[in-house]
Amino acid sequence: MAQFKDFNFKLLVIEKLMYEDETLTPAFSIDERMRDRGIADTVTYVYDNDLAFSVLEESRTYFEQLEISDELLASVDELLLDGGHQVYYECSPVWDGEDDLFDVRSLDDLALLPNLRLIDNADMLTLPDAEDQLAARGIEAG
């Protein structure tokens, strides 16, 4: 199984496969996990426990340990950078998109996606050489 180096890049892939394409199943739900623990309202729990604007440990552990087959990785031909992704809610239910919590910090994981052809909203990448790295792999920055 593929090993991702950048957690935030992996989240982009999970967004595509789990929440958009629905091919990586079952879909993770932090609200369901919290209900299983007897917590009725995830957002209230997050605020009451000073966990706002951080990745919940339960979510981080789940997504870090989640294995994605090479076959599913090969199916990814497009990624979208967008602060409104479902996977971000599942990680940080009250995140407002106003900080760098989910910024991709490395594009080393591009090698795991052999058929990636487009990263939409690539201008949101804050890496100084992102455009060059994408172009070197024949990936369009949309």
Rank of each mutant, 00 (worst) to 15 (best):
T25Q: 14
A2M: 12
L17S: 09
D123F: 13
N49R: 06
D6A: 11
M124E: 15
A74F: 07
E58G: 10
C91E: 05
G142K: 13
Q133W: 14
E22D: 12
F4C: 08
Q65H: 08
M124R: 14
S54A: 08
A136G: 09
M124Q: 15
T42P: 04
I39N: 01
I30Y: 01
R105Y: 02
S54L: 07
L107G: 09
L125K: 11
E20L: 11
M18K: 06
L73W: 02
D108G: 04
S59Y: 00
F9T: 02
E22I: 14
D77Q: 14
S29D: 08
D123Y: 11
D120F: 15
D36G: 11
N121W: 09
D120L: 12
A74K: 06
S29A: 12
L125N: 07
L24W: 02
L17M: 12
F28Y: 14
T44Y: 00
A74E: 02
S92F: 00
L112K: 11
L56E: 01
L80R: 13
L73T: 04
L81Y: 06
L107D: 08
E58A: 13
D21V: 09
F9W: 08
D120Y: 15
F53L: 02
E90W: 04
L24F: 03
E22C: 10
P128N: 02
P93D: 03
R105H: 11
N115R: 14
L17F: 04
I30L: 13
G84A: 11
M34I: 07
L113N: 04
L11H: 06
P114D: 03
L72D: 10
A141T: 15
P114Y: 13
D36R: 14
L110F: 10
L24C: 10
Q3L: 15
L118T: 06
R37C: 08
D123I: 15
D129Q: 09
R35C: 05
N49G: 05
D6I: 10
L72S: 03
Q86C: 14
S54H: 02
L127N: 01
A141L: 05
E78I: 12
E64C: 05
D99I: 01
R137A: 10
D70V: 10
L79C: 03
L17D: 13
T42F: 02
R33S: 01
L79H: 02
L101S: 03
E98Y: 05
E22Y: 10
L110K: 03
I68C: 05
D120H: 15
Y89E: 01
G84Q: 12
K10A: 00
D21Q: 13
D129H: 07
V104L: 04
D70R: 02
S106F: 02
I14V: 11
M124Y: 09
L134H: 08
E15A: 15
D36Y: 13
L11A: 05
Q133D: 09
D132A: 15
I119C: 07
R35D: 05
T23G: 09
A74Q: 03
R137K: 07
F102M: 04
D100H: 12
E131S: 14
E58N: 13
Y62K: 07
L12S: 12
R117C: 04
G38N: 08
L73H: 10
G142L: 10
A122E: 14
D103F: 04
F4E: 03
A136L: 03
R105E: 09
T42R: 06
L113E: 00
